[in-house]
Design a protein around this nucleic acid. Structure first.
Lengths: 337, 337
DNA sequence: CTGAAAGCGCTTACAG
DNA sequence: CTGAAAGCGCTTACAG
């Protein structure tokens, strides 16, 4: 006996009426609705979305594609998405879409094909043409966050501008020998976050009439930033007076490397990052802040809105999110001489 | 027309046979099975677990309760769980169970009551008696990781032993003024990770005949460890020569605080942690390693095994996971004088 | 405004 | 070994 039948019997109505009363779809007399709600509360009835999905086609579940869980930006975004979804009564199904991951293909071919999710939020993932095709063929709302996806409503900061701002800050302080330690993976530098931040850096240097600073490619993590910085700062004769790090984690690694090498920050080396990482204050890092947790909430809002009016009013393809410059103690004028 | 009907028609069999062939339940002639599999492959058929769950009662979906996503230990564990689940064809539904969280109650009353998950993996969560009651009443396998849960199969390291080992390491180096910077939340210190690590610390100090070292309670994060360490190390006259940090993140914060105060590590201050964080090598931190990613895989294994033979062979209530002592450059003998 | 009936896409006794 | 039928727990036209 289905659970809703119990509610119906207790309230003295049909299953159909009970369903209408509980879902809010269709006409039900106020008095009836109250009886049904009371009955449902009494036996602790919670509708099974699995059963409902069979007929409504909606499963109250959103799939999240994300390359890392354990990096600040991604972790914050994920928590933001989760909290917003729960607030709306949606479940979050997590797909950790790693770059060379063995399961990557299966996520598209199998997991997403199971028709379990109503929409997809793709966080910081770069999709191959084939993957994008598979995704769009699902016919479900897709929202991109962190990195814009061709033809899909996406949220991100303006990476080029952020990088330009960070670099200009260093230039305005008087630095001329500025290095960029940033994301590698040169193959797809074009549209990637990495590529744009590098481009913004070069743009600012060019505009100031400065020679291209050194670029040290690395992964977007603290230990990798540390290793790269050891190289970048290792040779005292060629050492830059300032580093623009593509993200705060790289910036922290750079600051630790500087300390290891006996280089004073900011006296002998200025460091600026992008992100607004939770450690930024502790490190005294000057950075360009973004708010990934809020971005997650926004992404949910957009995805659910697309679900509501499927055809009409698609959100704009690319939404740029606000930036905030936070000056702290990691940047100052270059040393004299 | 249901998708499996298409497969059946194409293979020239009934839906029942198609279902049996694809699921592997029940007898099907080999030749028939091949035809069905081929037909399914041809039209790219993937069974809807939502529909199947209605009759099997299984949804191929596991719920994960976790207090943080953005802390190394939890992030690693989550990635380990996700990857193991995907390998088994299971989805992961993420519930971020924060401590004072507004949604916390709803996760138990509403989300988990929707009958969507086949089992629950509770990571590092301390449950109230009421919550535990709600959880067990679901009648589903539950596995605890990180912190043991009363009466539930749980995986964790032996926190007391780990803390004792770390402390004894410092003692064996000759330290006598050792402080512990560790988890706060005194109200439920008893069974918590925090409480056990503090207890192990005290046990080791006692056993060595040393007076209780100072205990500085804090959150298990790097910035909070930093703030606590600034206090712990601030007064040169009372300063300890060694710090046992309850986790690596606190240890890193402590090392950064020491640097800020001009205190040499390890010359003037030894620091030891617990975890084996990905930054430990960069910081040169001596620590007791655990492998949360593998713990996640193990938790999945146990949960799925419990699903397979519901009644029989319950796994042991508390499984203790291996530890590995990693000595690096953050610990040495205390300064003379 | 409400109820009886059909049906979502599957799986599983039950016959044969 | 296979198929026809029933049914999982819901929701939604369709009558009334």
């Amino acid at each position: 006996m289905s659970a809703i039948a119990d509610v119906a019997r207790l309230a003295g109505v049909s299953k159909a009426t009970a369903s209408r009363a509980l879902s809010g779809h269709g006409y039900v007399a106020d008095e009836t609705r109250e009886r049904v709600t009371a009955a449902a509360a009494e036996i602790g009835y919670i509708a099974s979305p699995n059963a409902a999905s069979l007929i409504t086609g909606r499963s109250k579940n959103i799939g999240v594609l994300i390359p890392f869980v354990n990096r600040w930006f991604f972790g914050e975004l994920l928590e933001g998405i989760e909290s917003a979804l729960l607030g709306e009564g949606y479940d979050l199904t997590l797909y950790n879409l790693t770059v060379g991951g063995i399961e990557r293909e299966r996520i598209f071919d199998f997991f997403l094909a199971r028709k379990r999710v109503d929409a997809i939020i793709a966080v910081g993932v770069e999709l191959s043409a084939k993957e994008l095709e598979l995704l769009t063929r699902l016919g479900k709302p897709i929202v991109g966050v962190g990195v814009p996806i061709e033809g899909i409503p996406s949220l991100s900061i303006d990476d080029m501008t952020a990088a330009r701002l960070a670099t200009e800050h260093l230039i305005s302080l008087g630095h001329t020998r500025i290095a960029h330690i940033g994301g590698g993976q040169a193959e797809r530098m074009g549209h990637s976050v990495h590529g744009k931040r590098l481009a913004g850096f070069r743009q600012a240097m060019d505009a100031a009439g400065l020679p291209d600073g050194d670029f040290w490619p690395t992964e977007m993590s603290m230990p990798d930033g540390f290793s790269a910085a050891l190289q970048a700062l290792g040779d005292p004769r060629r050492r830059p007076t300032a580093v623009f790090a593509a993200c705060d984690e790289i910036a922290f690694g750079t600051m630790i490397a500087a300390q290891r090498l006996g280089i004073q920050v900011p006296g002998e080396l200025s460091v600026v990052g992008i992100d607004g990482h939770e450690y930024a204050e502790m490190f005294g890092l000057t950075t360009i802040e973004q708010k990934p947790r809020e971005q997650g909430g926004l992404a949910v809002e957009i995805a659910l809105a697309m679900l509501d009016d499927a055809a009409s009013s698609r959100p704009p393809t690319e939404t740029l999110l606000p930036l905030r410059f936070m000056v702290r103690s990691s940047t100052t004028s270059p040393p004299r001489g």
